[in-house]
């Protein structure tokens, strides 16, 4: 799975470029998040607005990414679509992650800063 990342002040925003975080995508997602971990600041917000389907493999990959980032970086989640929100809620992962209703948007001048991971 491809990700885009940009810095908003001291927070890194990460945006998946695909619509499904499922069993077929979960390993690539976790690998891409892992590549980010070396340069990640203290806070990373995963903008999940593009994801309209996530299964338990995808959820496991998000949890795995959180563990790769810990303890130096905290992974937070933002902008869940209804189908994804349901998986977080049913598994009570909405109590584990900080979940923001909306994700910060990329500043206009940072087109360069928005890069593929």
């Amino acid at each position: 799975m491809n990700l885009h990342a940009f810095l908003d002040g001291d927070v890194m925003i990460v945006i998946p470029t695909e619509r499904r975080l499922d069993a077929a995508a979960s390993v690539a997602f976790k690998d891409a998040m892992s590549r980010l971990s070396a340069e990640a600041p203290h806070r990373v917000i995963l903008d999940m607005s593009p994801i309209d389907f996530m299964d338990s493999s995808g959820l496991g990959a998000v949890i795995g990414a959180m563990k790769i980032f810990a303890p130096d970086t905290r992974l937070e989640i933002a902008a869940l679509t209804p189908a994804v929100e349901k998986v977080f809620r049913l598994t009570q992962m909405d109590r584990v992650f900080v979940i923001h209703a909306e994700a910060p948007t990329a500043p206009q001048e940072s087109a360069d800063a928005l890069r593929a991971v």
């Binding site: 299964d55 338990s56 959820l59 496991g60 990959a61 949890i63 959180m66 998986v87 049913l90 598994t91």
Partner: peptide
């Protein structure tokens, strides 16, 4: 949830049985 953090797997059958 234990100190190691939440499990990465094992949610599949829980979701099936819930829904």
């Amino acid at each position: 949830i234990d100190v190691q953090g939440p499990a990465e797997g094992g949610y599949g059958w829980f979701l099936i049985r819930t829904l």
